[in-house]
Structure formats: C-alpha cells, structure tokens
Design a protein around this nucleic acid. Sequence first.
DNA 1: CCGGTGAGTTAGACAAAGTCCAATTCTTGT
DNA 2: ACAAGAATTGGACTTTGTCTAACTCACCGG
Lengths: 139, 139
Amino acid sequence: MNFQPYTREAVADLLRGHDITPTHQRIEIAFVLFEKREHLCADQIFALVNARHAETSKATVYNTLKLFLDKRLVRELIVDPSKVFYDPNTTPHHHFYDVDSGELTDIPADSVRVEGLPALPPGVVAEGVDVIVRTRRAS
Amino acid sequence: MNFQPYTREAVADLLRGHDITPTHQRIEIAFVLFEKREHLCADQIFALVNARHAETSKATVYNTLKLFLDKRLVRELIVDPSKVFYDPNTTPHHHFYDVDSGELTDIPADSVRVEGLPALPPGVVAEGVDVIVRTRRAS
DNA sequence: CCGGTGAGTTAGACAAAGTCCAATTCTTGT
DNA sequence: ACAAGAATTGGACTTTGTCTAACTCACCGG
C-alpha cells in the first residue's frame, strides 16, 4: 500500500478493493492509519478515532484491525512486549526498535538481503520474514 | 551459553559467573530453563518450578527473569502477541514461528547472513538482530 | 414507503499477562 | 552469630485484549 488516500471516499474505495464493506467506523479507522503513516497500537487508534466525538467502541477497533489484518490492508508488528503495533505499510520492509523509547523506525527492504535461510518443512509456507534490529543508547 | 549445567551446584556457579546471587528460587528457575533447553514463557516456568512443592511466587519468577535478562543469562523472544518467551540460548540464532500452533523453532545463525542494513544513528548501538520467519500451514 | 434480514456495532463484564508494594524472610560479610 | 541489605511474598492492581448478547443500521423486495 503505497499511495495515500486523502479523502474518506478514497479510503472507502481502498476498503472495497480489499473486500471490506466500508462502514463509518471502518473508514475512520483506516483514515487515521493512512493519514499518519505511523506504527500505531490499538489504544492510540481508539484515541485518535474518538478525538472529536466518541463514535467508535473499543470492540469495533479490535474487530476492525483484525479484519484489516486478515484482508492484508495492514501488517501486525510484534516487537513490544506489551502491545501489538499496526503498520499501514504492507510492502516488504524491516524495522529498528529502540528498546529504551519503544520507538519503531522503518528499514527499506530493498537494501537488505537475508540469505541462507534453511528450507521449510513440507506443508508449511513462509508468511513473511521479519528482521528487527534492536537498538539502545550507547552506555 | 552452550554448556548444560546438570546439578544445582553447577547452576549456582553459572549464576555467580553472571553476577547473580544464587538463591534457592533463582537456582530452581535457572535449572528449569537449562534443563529443558526450550522456549518457555513466565507461566510455564512458574508451573514447572512449583510442580513438586509450591515454593516460588509469581512475583519472583518475573523479577528473576528480568534479572536474568539484564545479566544476559537468557534472551527475550517477542514473537507471540500475548506473551514473552525466554530463550536460554543466548548465542546468535534466529527463529521460525508457526502462526497456527505458536511453536518456535531455532534457526542456527551460522548459515544465515543479513546484509545491507543501514548505519545506525550516532549514540545508538545495536543490541541484536532478530530474524523471525513466520510460517503457517499451506492452504 | 415499510418491514425484515443479516452484517456491523456496542457496553460492559471478563480473562490473561505482568507490575507494584509493604511486610517478611533470607544471605552475606564480619 | 548478627546486623544490614538483598530477595521474596501475597495480593491488589493495571493494561491489553476478548467475548457476548442486545441493539442499530443499511439495504432489498414487495
């Protein structure tokens, strides 16, 4: 996903293109994700969506994120021991993770090569290869 | 950590070697970790340690794991969205993660090469590079 | 229009992992 | 053996996420 939909209509089209019925709540959630193209967790998304008027419940935020994940509209980043981050960038790329601040930064995939991975057992497919470089302030 | 300490005395020595005062509870926890050389989460460790006689509290298990982590006796694996796994193997290696079963398998590091990572900003050091290959049953 | 149907949403109770604290118990150095 | 500091403890608490049963909404046929 590398174009940026600016209007709710564009977001609605994006959802339709992924087989997702565009509802008010889903549009708002997707809008927030694609507006700030950042790594957000469910909590932050919940807060951002409801910033003006409370309109979307916690349950819907979780339901919707799971749906988006399933439909490959976003990616899940499991990197922080206490919460999952959602990444609106589904093209292959990797991450720096600052252990001190919890901050996540993208590493473009084109420069990085991972070689020598062993073959997978039969009947099993790779869903993706995540490279996470954990960093911290020099001591 | 690639030798396997079989006795509590050997475990105690291992702890001392890492600047950890060996207490009963810490020895039991380390013993469990190094006996089964598996990826265990706090819950499982708590259960294993208390399997015979309840002797170690939940708080101590968490305290101790954090201490072990700090002293580089174990490694933390953040791969499952709901819990942290602890890996008694601190030598460089990577992991397969089966999304369906939650199972973790080691990938020896010597075969794998990660190339082309961008330089780190000044004042920041890499703590480690984790490669996680997410797999699932072919559909 | 209007009422029915099924998908989507909701509040709030619940569950699981992990943290925190003040009181107690252990380890260690002398 | 003892004092002092370190480690441990139960239990309450927090946070992230799940579940459910009721409700709402968009849409379709008549």
